[in-house]
Design a protein around this nucleic acid. Structure first.
Length: 463
DNA sequence: ATCGGCTCGCGCAA
DNA sequence: TGCGCGAAGCCGAT
């Protein structure tokens, strides 16, 4: 087969390999997992070629936006699992509490790296950090896209909607939906000054980093690649059969794997291969692969090719124009961001969705749309609504600050969607009603679980 | 319960 | 240039 790295790999600077170097550094940004990791595999291949080992670099940067106990405990606990598994293969890890760019530049020098490999986050911040590092590092910085089944850059341009990216993906899929070749390092990585995660509790690390504790760890989501793999097995056995089944997304149980995908703790390719091999009806398999590949990679395509992925400017013309036309429509209720954040609206359904978000770091698939559409309806302006929805999702959702998070929010305003009947506030952007939710969703149980009056909100609004 | 219309524009067929 | 059809809906008619 053609090298598995072709198409996934792009050198970000023109530096020559340091031939006298002592290690290959893998700057682990997004793909925080020890297996099924093309960037790591690329690092191992380069290291074996040069007769050196692989040293992982991870920066714990407490100044990252929305660095809270929720996101950082998920990250740190997952990383502890990842680093332990890597260590068993002779791949050492350097984990430091510092800003990533100066950190990786300094480490490349300190470790006498032959080259530095990193993975791909398509978000603005990840791109900027990579570019800055590429300019400052004296050896090659090589980017490997390991978080998509079809490498992002092969799609080539921003896609209009699922129906335009779908045929492109299906054409390329036979090449990329393949069991990857396993590769093992021949030499050990370097042992350098590092936070020892095996000896450091998450709590003490959160304290040391002065992480914002006002957003507690999410319920029902123990992090780590080991847990992610366990959940995958369980999903394939229990939830995948019948996944397409009842048809209505309202009743469809989700895979529950999105937080692990978000933090790179499981590979989308592994999920797809497991679904492909599963002994389940074809339509169940197809429904899952559609969500995992077509919809997820459409989201990455959007943030990768549209710099306005978090602004109304990122919307198609028809949506921008229809929203502008309805900018001054009177709103039936107007809430501020902080009122939304503490679930203080007049609507028990909406309040329940927000409470679920606060507690679990996600909202059930179906009512998540309702949650977002009502923020549009009950905010002073469309721009304000977007700010609120993004802030709530970035801060409280485990899938916040990800391509999926941004795309889900922009979808509320018409992205990747089509126009419908014109109505107040929304114009021709799709609207959702309480009546619809009540008829399509098992509301009683949901409200009983999330709208208990005695439930205390542990999360205070915060800037 | 089910169905058609709403409304726009991409991408392909011709 | 014409035409089919689309990320999860809503509403009113039957």
């Amino acid at each position: 087969m053609a090298s598995a790295f072709e198409g996934r790999t792009k050198p970000l600077n023109g530096r020559p390999v340091h031939t006298g170097g002592q290690t290959i550094v893998y700057w682990m940004q997004n793909s925080q997992r020890p297996h099924d990791n093309p960037a790591l595999d690329q690092a191992i291949a380069l290291a074996n070629e040069r007769g050196v080992g692989v040293t992982i670099y991870v920066a714990l940067d407490a100044t990252a936006p929305h660095a809270t106990a929720r996101t950082f405990s998920f990250l740190i606990d997952g990383l502890r699992d990842t680093v332990r598994q890597l260590g068993e293969r002779g791949i050492t890890a350097v984990v430091r509490a510092e800003a990533a760019v100066p950190g990786v530049v300094a480490l490349a020098r300190e470790a006498q790296a032959c080259a530095v490999v990193t993975d791909l986050s398509p978000l603005r911040r990840g791109r900027r950090l990579r570019q800055e590092a590429a300019n400052l590092i004296g050896v090659p910085l090589i980017r490997v896209d390991g978080d998509h089944i079809v490498p992002l850059r092969l799609i080539g341009k921003e896609q209009w909607a699922a129906r335009t990216i779908r045929p492109v993906i299906h054409r390329l899929l036979p090449t990329w939906l393949q069991e990857p070749e396993a590769i093992e390092p021949q030499r050990r990585g370097l042992t350098l000054d590092s936070i020892d995660l095996a000896q450091t509790s998450t709590d003490s690390l959160l304290d040391a980093l002065q992480i914002d504790r006002s957003v507690p760890p999410a319920e029902d989501a123990p992090p780590g690649p080991t847990e992610a793999a366990r959940r995958l097995d369980q999903f394939v056995a229990q939830t995948l059969p019948g996944y397409a089944g009842n048809g209505r997304s309202a009743e469809r149980a989700g895979s529950g794997l999105s937080p692990y995908l978000r933090f790179g703790q499981i590979s989308p390719l592994r999920l797809a291969l497991a679904a492909r091999a599963a002994d389940v009806p074809d339509d169940d398999r197809a429904a899952f692969l559609e969500e995992l590949i077509v919809r997820r990679e459409l989201a990455s395509n959007f943030v990768a090719y549209n710099p306005a992925y978090d602004r109304l400017d990122g919307l198609p013309t028809w949506a921008r124009e229809t929203l502008a036309k309805h900018a001054d429509d009177p709103r039936p209720f107007v809430y501020t961001r902080d009122e939304f954040a503490v679930a203080q609206t007049h609507d028990p359904i909406w309040n329940a969705t927000q409470r679920e978000l606060l507690a679990r770091g996600r909202i059930h698939n179906y009512v998540r749309m309702y949650w977002g559409k009502k923020i549009i309806e009950w905010s002073a302006s469309h721009a304000e609504a977007l700010k609120t929805a993004l802030w709530l999702n970035d801060r409280f959702a485990l899938d916040g600050r990800s391509a999926n998070g941004f795309t889900n929010v922009l979808w509320l305003f018409g992205k990747h969607d089509r126009p419908w009947t014109e109505r107040p506030i929304f114009g021709t952007v799709r609207w959702m009603s309480e009546r619809g939710v009540a008829s399509k969703f098992e509301l009683k149980a949901y409200l009983a679980r999330w709208n208990l009056s005695e439930m205390t909100l542990t999360v205070a609004p915060h800037s």
